[in-house]
């Protein structure tokens, strides 16, 4: 019991716990759309791009959220622009833009060594750093994101399923995709403190992948993914506190463990699927039979029949 209650004596832990559960939930929510569009790498890329913006805004003494937010927004626009060039795929565009942006951050850090400790937290996540301002930002972003995803449920589902056909049926696909990119950028920025840049992508992808393994229903996937995200956030925070390991790593490790267990269970289910008792076909010689004359396609004849219950659809 002390595992659960001891950390709650510390205000920083309560802050971290609320932040981690909100971040876990909202990452789980947007993760569904990212996984189903097979765009898992965008979370990874964008988090690295935002890191560059975070470093620049700290060095220039700008507001972190404003600086990193604008940087993330322009990174998304740049990715969309470069990906629009047919000779370059979206994956290559993300690779170029986001790694270059990350490199800007690394280059600046190497010039200003005094930031190294703060940026270790930015890379791997640190619960000690969650301030009241961070908590407010996380709460606002999580609520607004959930609200927007709920309001634009139809557009998002249709665009995720088939963007080209959605456009034909009148869905404003470009606008929907831009809105989703903005939500993604905002979620990544507020998640940085708890998750760390390098761990955010996994927090987005793992809950959705686990939920997808469990069910085929879209609505259930959304619900389960959010729940798994929240659980990983809370349990990961406790592990982080007790093991003195960075919060981002423990949250992702909890998620990875859940994924592994779910995957193994699914694998076992697939291997052990056997017909229920009574549905196995009986050996042919044990089936009671009878003979009666009848007609097929104009031919009158007699042959052996099993004594099973007559199927009314049969027209013999």
């Amino acid at each position: 019991m002390s595992f659960m209650t001891t950390p709650l004596k510390y205000e920083f832990f309560i802050h971290g716990l609320i932040a981690a559960s909100l971040v876990g939930g909202v990452c789980g929510l947007i993760g569904v759309y990212i996984v189903l569009r097979r765009m898992s790498y965008i979370g990874h890329g964008l988090s690295h791009a935002v890191f560059g913006g975070a470093v620049v805004s700290t060095v220039m003494k700008w507001n972190f959220y404003l600086g990193a937010g604008l940087w993330g927004f322009f990174s998304v626009l740049l990715i969309n622009y470069v990906a629009g060039k047919k000779k370059i795929g979206a994956d290559a565009a993300i690779g170029v833009v986001t790694t270059a942006s990350f490199a800007v951050g690394v280059a600046i850090i190497s010039q200003y060594r005094r930031f190294t400790k703060n940026f270790e937290a930015a890379l791997f996540g640190n619960i000690l750093g969650v301030t009241s301002e961070d908590l407010w930002m996380i709460t606002i972003v999580a609520l607004v994101s959930a609200l927007l995803i709920g309001i634009f449920y139809r557009q998002l589902l249709f665009t995720t399923f088939d963007a080209e056909v959605a456009r034909i049926y009148g869905v404003p696909v470009g606008w929907t995709e831009s809105l989703f990119s903005l939500i993604l950028a905002a979620v990544i920025i507020v998640s940085m403190q708890v998750m760390g840049v390098t761990m955010i992508a996994a927090a987005i992808v793992i809950p959705a992948v686990v939920a997808r393994l469990i069910t085929d229903s879209f609505n259930k996937i959304v619900f389960l993914s959010v729940l798994i995200g929240i659980f990983c956030g809370i349990f990961g925070m406790y592990l982080s506190f007790h093991l003195n390991v960075s919060s981002g790593a423990t949250i992702v490790l909890v998620g990875a463990a859940i994924f592994l267990i779910t995957y193994l269970i699914q694998l076992l289910k697939e291997r052990t699927v056997l017909p229920k008792e009574g549905t196995l076909p009986a050996p042919l010689d044990s089936v009671p039979t009878h003979q009666h004359p009848h007609e097929h396609a104009g031919f009158f004849h007699v042959h052996e029949h099993s004594n099973h219950e007559e199927d009314p659809s049969e027209t013999e």
Partner: peptide, 15 residues
């Protein structure tokens, strides 16, 4: 893609 028949048909009603 995890969608039901009803969800797919509903897409045609978007406009």
């Amino acid at each position: 893609f995890p969608v039901t028949v009803e969800q797919v048909v509903a897409m045609g009603l978007y406009r």
